[in-house]
Structures are given as structure tokens and as C-alpha cells.
Simulated scan of single mutants.
Amino acid sequence: MHSAKFLAVAAAFFGSAIAKDCDDDIEVKEANPVLSCDTVKGKIIVDDSVAGDLVLEGPEKIEGDIIINNATGIISISSSTIESVEGKFELVGLESLQRIGMNALTSINELEMRKLPALRDLTFGSKGVTEATIVTITDTLIDDLSGLMLDKVESLDINNNKRLTNFESSLVNITEALKINNNGKGMTVNMPSLESAKEIQIANVGSFNVPALETVSASLKLDKCDIKSFRAANLTSIKKALSFINNVQVTNISLPVLKEIGGDLRIVNNTKLTDIGSFPKLESMASINFGGNFKKGELPALEDVPGAAEISTTAKDDDGEEFCSYWDDLGDKIQGGVECTYDNENALEGGDKEGGQNSDGSSNSDDDDAAGMVSVNTALMGLGLLAGIAQLL
């Protein structure tokens, strides 16, 4: 009887001891530390001397950060108990790290993974991480990010992951920035549920699919992509700039319900794009900058451009003249004026208008102006010489 009571009391005592919270930061200096608390209220900081297979067992919640930086001897990181990290989960400069297996983890405030050149395998929870605020994944060998099952983030930055050729995401809202750049060759980015974002910057991808996108509260930029077409069937508003630059494979751009662009509309050096694009409902933008091999392009709903339109095309003869005549005829709607040249070998270089022909057939080069300046200066020199002779007489 007494022994049973003692065992019960002992079990309660030791159980409460094991279930305690850790109020202070914890510094980890060995690969398999003893972490006897359910909740860590401070940080877990792993010393850079730790090597081998790092196992973080015990806690379920980390209210602070997990910081693992410059521990170049760590090969793997695992935990079957940690469910949430309310601060930052920071992994930087782990040159030997090959695997991450956080099998219970579903919630992270900020995930930062940088300079992990050997990392191939990433596992988060049975259903992946479903909650995060800021996610940065750069310079890894990861080829699968299916462990990120997010509906909403502030920012998502995925770049320089050379084996990552496909990214599927169920994200609905991005309150700050989406940046995807320089990952695997021909990378496919499919975000079928994305409805709104603040800033979108996409570079070096093979396709970018956002069929549900409705609003961009800053800018949308596609640069140096191998996409053949881009369509955003539900996008109505871009508060700042829209730009397509150096996308050498694109032949079609379609934004059929876009009504307004708060900043610049810039389409430059997309060498296969001969039609500026389909913008049938676009009414306004701050300014226009087009440069390319254009033969066609109209904005039938255009009402007002407070700034200027700088437009140039390599198209020659009737194609080029007709193209520029259309834009010149829109001069009453473009308050800053229209500068359009055709047969311009510099057209792909940022829309440079120098060197081409104006729609009235006149040259737009500096040569005529230079000749005029030479003739005027010669005349002035002659007058000066005559005046000097007169003073000598």
C-alpha cells in the first residue's frame, strides 16, 4: 500500500519535473543533448563545434528561436517532438548538412535556410509546415519543397537551388514579396490558388502559372525567363509597375481583365514577342516603355497616361510605320508625349529610340543635328575671322 502510494507520488513528481518549461536560452554543445522540457521559452543555440547527427528530442514548442549557424560538421538535423517554432528557425553555413527531418513540425514563424550546399532531403511534419510568416531557402541541393504546405506568408524567397525544377504551392495570399530566381533550369512554378500578393519578382523559370491572381499591390516583374506565354486571366489591378524584360522565348502575354497599372508598363528585349500583348481593358498606367521586335500592339481601352511613352521597334517599312502611327495617334491620351521609332537596331536595348525612323519618315539619329551644329559653328567662325580682320585694318 505504502509502496504503491510512494510510486504514484514519485511518478507525479518526476512527471512534473520532465514536463517543466525552460525559461532561459539553451546552448547545445553536443549532438544528442538532454532537453527535459515541453516548452522552451528562450532560444536553442547550437554551438558551431557540434558535428554528426544532431538530435533535438523533448520539447514540443519553442517560443524563441532555433539557431544553427556555421556548424560545418553537422550531417543531419532531426526531431520527432518539436511541433512549433514561434521565433526563427535559422540554418546558415552548414556545409556538410545533408538531411533535415523535423517529423512533427507544422508551424514556424520565420524559416531561414542559407548556404547549405549539401542539403538534399527536407521533411517537415506528416502534412508539412502549414503556417509560416517568412520563408527563405537559398543555396541548397533541395529538389522537393512539398513539405511547405502554406496558405499564407508575408514573404517567400526561393533562389539558387540548382536541383529544384518544380515548385507547387497552395498559397492564397502573400502580404509582402514572392521572389523566385535562378533555381533549376526550366523550373516550373505552379501556384493555382494564389489570389493576391504585394510584390512578385520571377526570374529564370520555365513557366509561371497564377490563374487565380487578382491583385498585385506593388509590382509584377518577369525577367530572364524561358516562359513561352504568360496569362493572368483574373488580374485586374497592379498598383506599381508591370515589366517583362529579357524573356527570350515568350511569344504571348495576356492579361484580359487588367484595368490599371499604377506605375510603368515596361516590355523590353523579349526577342520573339512581335505583338505587345493582350490588354483589352487596360485604361491607365503612369508611363510606357516598349522596346522590341514589335509589329503589332494596341491598348483599345486606354484613357490616360500622366507620363510619357517611349517606344521603339526593329520592324521596318510599312509594318514599322503603321506600328508607330498607332501610338502617335494616342498623343492626346499620353500627357507626357509619345516618342516612337521604327527600323531601330537599338530597339531591344531598353527601348532606346536613338537611331530609328519616326512615323513621319524622318531620321531620329543625332547625325542631322550634328551636321547642323557644324554648319552653324563654321558660319560663326567665319564671322569671327572677318571681325578680327576688320579690327586689324
Rank of each mutant, 00 (worst) to 15 (best):
A301C: 04
E57A: 06
T133N: 12
N377F: 06
N252W: 05
T251F: 10
G125T: 13
I18Q: 14
L273R: 13
P211Y: 00
Q335N: 14
S16P: 00
I288K: 02
N269E: 09
K259R: 13
A347D: 07
I62Y: 01
S207D: 07
G101L: 06
D329H: 10
A4Y: 12
K152E: 13
D329R: 14
N269D: 14
K316D: 11
L393P: 00
K29A: 00
A4H: 15
C22P: 06
L164Q: 05
M187G: 08
D367P: 02
T188R: 10
L156T: 08
D352K: 15
E322N: 12
N377C: 05
E195S: 10
F6D: 11
P33G: 02
R163M: 03
D360M: 12
K20S: 14
F279T: 14
K228F: 07
I253N: 04
D121F: 11
M187Q: 14
V305E: 05
N364L: 01
Y326V: 11
S84V: 01
L171Q: 03
F167G: 06
S219N: 02
K179Y: 10
S254H: 06
D139G: 09
R120D: 11
I67M: 01
V338L: 07
V205D: 02
I158F: 10
G355C: 08
E112N: 15
T106V: 12
G384P: 01
D275Y: 06
G64V: 02
G186L: 05
D25G: 01
N270E: 11
G58I: 08
L111N: 03
T140R: 03
S16W: 08
G350N: 05
L299W: 04
K239F: 04
N69G: 04
I62L: 03
E354T: 15
R99H: 05
E176Y: 12
A197L: 09
I174G: 02
G372E: 15
T72M: 00
V338F: 09
